[in-house]
Amino acid sequence: MIRLRDIERFYETPAGRTYVLRRVNLDVKEGEFVTVMGPSGAGKSTLLAILGMLDSAWTGEYSLLDEPVHTMNRKQRAELNKKYIGFVFQSYHLLDNLTVYENLEIPLSYQNVKAGERASIVCDVLDRFHIVGKKDLYPTQLSGGQQQLVAVARAVIMKPKLLLADEPTGNLHSSQGKEIMDLFLRLNEEGTTIIQVTHSEKNAEYGHRLVNLLDGWVVSDARTARPEVQGA
């Protein structure tokens, strides 16, 4: 599904070039659940940003579903992003002035989905995530876990093939975090490819693969022993 070859990301500073990612090569198959770990400054979030097409100042080759992203312009990348990728942020990044319902609806609106269809999809997702009762609440009226739940729902509402999660449980209690990870597991079992960045080894156990970064380099890439789904 994903092919990265010689991906590099650097910043020009008065002291010279500062590399964030160095010659990253990575292949991810459809349906895989990949965890990216490493110390602070290793380049994990940068890698995720490149995969999610939030960052375009990189060099190398990146193919997504055989589409050569590295040859595309900004508009083409945005279209690809909209079509195939969902993003979950550490800080949830819900829109505070929109209700839960409206937060879920907004990606559909940006995809020019008709109003009637949007309503049907949102109701379906609300139901699926058991948050129907919260649809008229604002994010500030929800707990951290609930907000992240809504964020995940928003990320998957367009049924993306790829879900990217940057420290999805970083701001949550352990029980809330488990809830979210269990959800990710379920999504993965339903076919969604997931790449997560995390500091938590417990969270890493949910994935099939563990990729370690250090100073921008991929230092290891190994399969995990995926445990039983916890708390199901």
Binding site: G52, L54, K75, A78, N81, K82, F87, F89, H93, L94, L95, D96, N97, I106, P107, Y110, Q111, R154
Partner: peptide, 13 residues
């Protein structure tokens, strides 16, 4: 900025 960034990341042109 955060709101604008989120909207852009959600697919807003």
């Amino acid at each position: 900025r955060r709101e604008i960034a989120v909207r852009l990341s959600l697919g807003a042109g």
